[in-house]
Design a protein around this nucleic acid. Structure first.
Lengths: 240, 240
DNA sequence: GCAAAAGTGTTACGCATACACCCATGA
DNA sequence: TCATGGGTGTATGCGTAACACTTTTGC
């Protein structure tokens, strides 16, 4: 590499974050209000990256401004760089995927922007580039969700089995056989049954479960934790 | 996002490429000679990104300088940004994975750097950051190879079944059962048997095959093309 | 004829699939 | 008692896993 770093090698860099949450049986994405001229009304939370700040730190800053949260599960997605954007200026947009627990938002009043959560199957019309970013991010979410049990990041500390199924059904846009699905998860011994029941959605009530966090971190990268079995190649379906 | 783009938002950006090839039964990575002061002798090909050029175009430029090739299968990997690099300057390094056919290199003399190919299990000691980049890239290669039949990109137009098996064994660092492996690939009907045999590695000779390119592009994203079946979760092994 | 690699077929087991009924509760 | 959602067991079939011998050729 060259020794000098003239301005021609400095690129205007921005972070977009796609934050997923789960609420009322819907997986949702966070958008912020956009009042600019050519606005679509809503856009992805984002900001430019300061030369003195890492990409991840910038993403966390954006998260804090829009949700008040100071940390989250975070994955890098991909860069989107179109030379011929509508503005003459070339901007390198780098996208992060974040998963948060929306129950954790209660009581946080540290939100500095107008924000709204949209179910992933009922997104408003936004800028086409951003629609593409969100679509690509959902694909990546599916890929990650197959390899690693990350969907727990969307759930509260206590959650019910129907909620767990619902999260996956939302993300993959298809139904699962509840019996097979639950059996699979119970067999991992990641789930610890609680004595209390949630009565929020039924008269009978559904038992709460908690995640065995120790086992979770231990097995996170274990190929046996792969959810791929529930989603086998035997059956025709697609990630895209 | 803010309207202005002062220099504080311009980030010195560089591309590193990890180019994979296959030669003499080894999957290899391309490194370039490094004569700088604190050198390890070898480093990943790379360069800064010009503000007027896309990341992908920069990656292709680097490829051309080091191999003479003007195109290749390319995947984005991830950015690596450490604020506290050895140099005081913060550099955003963005990594791409490339797959090329090394037979295609014959006769190309358009190489402007000292380069060498190292088998992925016999890499020289290089800068720790770059070692990490290569390791992460190999993991991504495995992931992609499971979902899509990209390994053909490493092979020549004509290739033998033992070569195909060997590529996968190299990348995954494990042996496969040749019978099951071959059966799997033949069942995809992606392979067209030729009449000629390669006598390069045995007296008996191995039949050449060609890829059905049309079917290949058609089925590239088809979940049924997933090689995951050969690498099921039933068996204990790891991508990492 | 022998060495070395290529090529091929069958069996067994495990997992995903498909499927239906009872349970618990509040109203 | 009834309506609603929660919870559970089993049989089947498919695909991966495991396994060994014959073929071809050059020397």
């Amino acid at each position: 590499m060259k020794q000098r770093d003239p301005d021609e090698f400095r690129v205007l860099t921005a972070i977009d974050i796609v934050v997923f949450g789960f609420e009322q049986n819907d997986v949702k994405v966070l958008l912020v209000g956009d009042d600019s001229m050519e606005s679509y009304g809503w856009k992805l939370p984002g900001s430019y990256v300061q030369a003195s700040e890492t990409l991840a730190a910038t993403a966390v800053d954006i998260l804090a401004k829009t949700t008040g949260l100071k940390q989250a599960y975070m994955e890098f997605v991909m860069p989107f760089d179109r030379l011929s954007s509508c503005s003459a200026q070339r901007v390198l947009r780098i996208c992060y995927l974040l998963l948060i627990n929306m129950k954790g938002l209660n009581g946080i009043s540290d939100i500095r922007q107008r924000v709204e959560w949209f179910p992933i199957d009922q997104m408003p019309v936004i800028q086409p580039d951003e629609q593409e970013i969100i679509q690509k991010t959902i694909v990546q979410l599916r890929l990650s969700a197959i390899r690693q049990p990350i969907m727990f990041e969307l759930l509260d500390e206590r959650f019910t089995l129907p909620e767990l199924v619902s999260v996956y059904e939302n993300v993959f846009g298809r139904k699962f056989d509840v019996r097979n699905f639950v059996r699979k998860f119970l067999s991992t011994s990641l789930l610890i049954k609680q004595n209390e029941k949630s009565k929020e959605t039924s008269r009978k009530g559904a038992y709460y479960y908690k995640l065995d966090h120790e086992l979770y971190s231990l097995l996170f990268d274990d190929p046996h934790m792969s959810v791929a079995n529930m989603i086998s190649t035997r059956h025709k379906w697609s990630l895209f």
